[in-house]
Amino acid sequence: MSFAEKLNKGSFVVTSEIGPPKGTEVEKMLEEAEVLRGMVDGFNVTDLQSSVMRLGSLAVCHLLVERGLEPIFQITCRDRNRLALQSDLLSAYVLGIRNVLVLTGDHPILGDHPEAKPVFDLDSVSLLKVASTLGEGEDMKGNKLDGKPEFLLGAVVNPGADPLELQLMKMEKKIEVGAKFFQTQAIYDLRKFEEFMKKVEKYKVPILGGIVLLKSAGMAKYMNEKVAGVSVPERYIKMMAEAKKKERPRISIQIGAELIKGIKQLCQGVHIMPLGWERYVPRLLEASGLA
């Protein structure tokens, strides 16, 4: 069953993120994907994550399609103007890609080419709208397309953001212009997430709660300080701090599993962002009872 079918049926879905390499060596990345075959319903392929130049999302999605794995093509507004964005969406469709996650994208100043010209010709809302229009057989200027790309369009939302109302307004807009599912920023605080879910219930749109495995107490503290909408509870930080280095993956998986079990009660899926710890994802899924 495809990712879209599962979503429509209302089944619980699992997606995981794949980070394309900086360079052309794709074997390791593909192996990591291979390990998850059958365990996850979709692979999010990031688009120059954190504004760091690397192999493109489009090519990697295509490689996954070739191997019979289902990709979710992440596309950001940072690097392309409206011509290139529309064209890349057409290309993606032709290459067998059916799921697209639309994001604004980090600012280039945060990445490894801070001198770059930021494009942001469109933003996530307008790009979603454009993608929907393309699906109806027209480009954004109303010109007819010969063959139309019909995607399952997704977007992101940050449940921990403050003020939340502002997030919700943007989420509403995204739904209005065609977002059919949402993946969230990392969740560590289940109670807060539950409140969020209560607020978005009315939209009746599938939400996949985000999971980022903690690698250390330091990482948790860093995220608390710097990453928008993320607050790792003291308890988890303490658990990570007390664990010996060798023990950390085990503890981290234990935390992750606890969160996934909680999320499962609240929404329709989970989205795992391993950030280099792809190898631990199978164990995490097992521990959460999803494998």
Binding site: P108, I109, P114, E115, A116, P118
Partner: peptide
């Protein structure tokens, strides 16, 4: 000005400035 316009140094803008 009797000068040759040399474009041999490639200019790339630094948008972070």
């Amino acid at each position: 000005q009797g000068r040759r316009l040399t474009l041999n140094s490639v200019q790339i803008r630094n948008y972070s400035r």
